[in-house]
Amino acid sequence: MLTALIVALVIGAVAGWLAGLLVQGTGFGLLGDIVVGIVGALITSTLLPKLGIGLTLGGGIIGAILAAAIGAVILLLIVRLVRQLTA
């Protein structure tokens, strides 16, 4: 259980960091990046199968990081759009 939590945090941190690099100007710091990465992984794990897209990039941790990063980018773009609409 503890190992799974640590792996999820590491994947979330890396995915959030990657998404922050791809979507400039939306950095949330380390803790925020972890949260964005984990939420991004949840987005991707529910959204892609419903669209009929299977993301099997070799499986393992690299595939999980890439999938979470895709979801985190989607989340950051939504956050940026909401910020622009409310400003």
Rank of each mutant, 00 (worst) to 15 (best):
M1A: 14
M1Q: 10
L2R: 04
T3P: 05
A4G: 03
A4N: 08
I6E: 06
I6S: 10
I6M: 13
V7F: 07
V7A: 10
L9F: 14
I11G: 04
G12N: 09
A13Y: 04
A13G: 07
V14N: 00
V14E: 07
V14A: 11
A15N: 12
G16N: 15
G16Q: 12
G20T: 10
G20V: 08
L21Q: 13
L22V: 11
V23I: 15
Q24D: 08
G25S: 00
G25K: 00
G25E: 00
T26V: 05
T26A: 09
G27R: 05
G27F: 05
F28A: 14
F28H: 09
G29R: 02
L31I: 13
L31R: 03
D33V: 01
D33I: 12
I34G: 08
I34T: 11
I34E: 08
V35I: 14
V35Q: 06
V35K: 11
V35G: 10
V36K: 02
V36F: 12
G37Y: 03
G37K: 00
I38H: 02
V39C: 03
V39E: 00
V39Y: 01
G40R: 07
A41H: 12
A41Q: 10
A41R: 05
T44P: 01
T44Q: 07
S45H: 06
S45Y: 09
L47I: 08
L47G: 04
L47C: 03
L47Y: 06
L48K: 02
P49A: 03
L51T: 03
L51E: 03
G52K: 06
G52Q: 06
I53K: 00
G54Y: 05
G54A: 14
L55N: 04
L55D: 02
L55I: 12
T56R: 06
T56S: 12
T56C: 01
L57F: 15
L57H: 08
L57A: 15
G58D: 09
G58L: 09
G59Y: 01
G60M: 11
I61P: 00
I62C: 11
G63S: 15
G63V: 04
G63L: 09
A64K: 05
I65Q: 10
I65W: 11
I65L: 13
I65D: 05
L66N: 04
L66H: 04
L66W: 08
A67N: 10
A67C: 09
A68R: 03
A68F: 07
A68K: 07
A68D: 03
A69K: 07
I70T: 08
A72F: 09
V73S: 02
I74G: 01
I74D: 01
L76W: 08
L76R: 15
L77H: 11
L77V: 11
I78P: 09
V79Q: 14
R80F: 11
R83C: 07
Q84D: 12
Q84H: 11
L85T: 13
T86P: 10
T86E: 13
T86N: 14
T86Y: 12
A87G: 14
